[in-house]
Amino acid sequence: MTPALKISNLVKKFGGLVATNDLSLVIEDQQSVGLIGPNGAGKTTVFAQIMGEHRQTSGSIELYGHEISNDTTPERIRRGVSRTYQVPRPFTDMNVLENIRVGMMPNNIWKMITSPPRHSRETEIALSVGFAKADLTKTPGELSMGDLRKLEMARTIATGTKVMLLDEVFAGLTVAEIAQITTLIQSMRKDGMTFLIVSHDLKALEPLVDSVIAINYGRKIAEGSFSDVMNDSAVRSSYLGAA
């Protein structure tokens, strides 16, 4: 079966700094994989390369068997991969529904002019990520951090993504909000979404992933089940600070 995402020998250099060092990974369709590593390990840089925000120095990235390394970010998104950011990036003067609308728009000027917004689908997506009806006309300034994370996920869903990259999705959330986002991710997994999740909150990450990949200095140092990776000596020494 063709994997959802396949990264082969990915290298990214910023001058003399090697941010991604010969990294290879495979994520099967509908699988959920955690990507962990200490600060500066290069996790976000991997996301940026998958999305085409940074071009890799060498290596290849395939999405459902299609090489996407030379595609632009919008092209990659239309092929089915999308991401959220550590710091949410909403459209500040737009309400929840309008934020979602941007994710649903066709990447074609003429169609943008001639096709009306799909209000019912916008509402459906907003409600599916846990927004209350009363929240739909709120602007991002009126939302909690948990709601902003949900809004990012909603806009990502609106693009029609099949592979979702979540970057520090639990950062800045309360315990109750973490529980909400966990439930949301679990429900999306049941619906067939493929995930690559970066998180420093290992406790919250554990129930959400089928396997974990640990990286340090841009290089893969361990891969396997959550418990296997946590018990790996290289991971413990580099990531957890214990031998």
Binding site: M51, V102, M105, I113, T114, R155
Partner: peptide
């Protein structure tokens, strides 16, 4: 007042997010 107007406003608010929403 069309979706194009919304998209152009979105560019003014956060260009990276517009790109990250799959729009050129």
């Amino acid at each position: 007042r069309t979706q194009l107007g919304t998209a152009l406003s979105a560019v003014g608010m956060n260009e990276e997010s517009v790109r990250g929403s799959g729009l050129s």
